[in-house]
Amino acid sequence: MANTILHKAKTRGHANHGWLDSYHSFSFANYYNPERIHFGALRVLNDDTVSAGRGFGKHPHDNMEIISIPLEGDLQHEDSMGNVAVIKKGDIQAMSAGTGIFHSEYNKNKDELVKFLQIWIFPNKKNVEPRYSQVTLNTEDRHNKLQEVLSPNADGKGVWIHQDAWFHLGKLDKDFSTEYIIKKKGNGVYAFVLNGDITIDGQPLNTRDGLGIWDTDKIKIKADSDAELLLMEVPMTI
């Protein structure tokens, strides 16, 4: 029988720094909850809103797979590998920090907010060569479908990372239902509702709720309203 853990949106950690308004599904920075350290290899799920023209200055990372998914606005990326890029809604960015990188992420626009998800996954290999990638996705491919946006495969449909993890995005019409089949035995799925109302394996979820499910080989998904969903399949043992 499947195990589940429910994280209602309002129970997330919250930090408002003025320029950055961030909700933490798992312990991060000054938010520490020993009951919410990680879900398997998923260590960080931050729901960030950055003020116009502001952002995260140059800072380091190592040994972490870092994924950014813009939800609104444009995010300007620069890193120590020489990459300069802008990611916007419909794009997904992945960095393998490996032996160490420095990067900055800024709201490119001076007159609008940028909202994005910042997701950190423990890698399955330490001290890899740092790597940056971004992919523009066709958002039509997630209408009443689960669109693969991340995988461990370099030739996959989205970005790839050093971990046996798969991410899917879905934009579901009210009453649409589907199933998600776990790709690797032993993995779990952390479902995060971007907006709308969705029932997963009988558990009703609302905007920004998270549900972790493991010890199962598939999950049932039903949209109770028009809704958008992010599914993160990750190893439970790391």
């Binding site: 260590r43 380091p60 990372h61 190592d62 040994n63 972490m64 950190w120 423990f122």
Partner: peptide
């Protein structure tokens, strides 16, 4: 220590 910075 993972992440290399202040986050964790």
């Amino acid at each position: 220590h993972f992440g290399g910075g202040s986050g964790l």
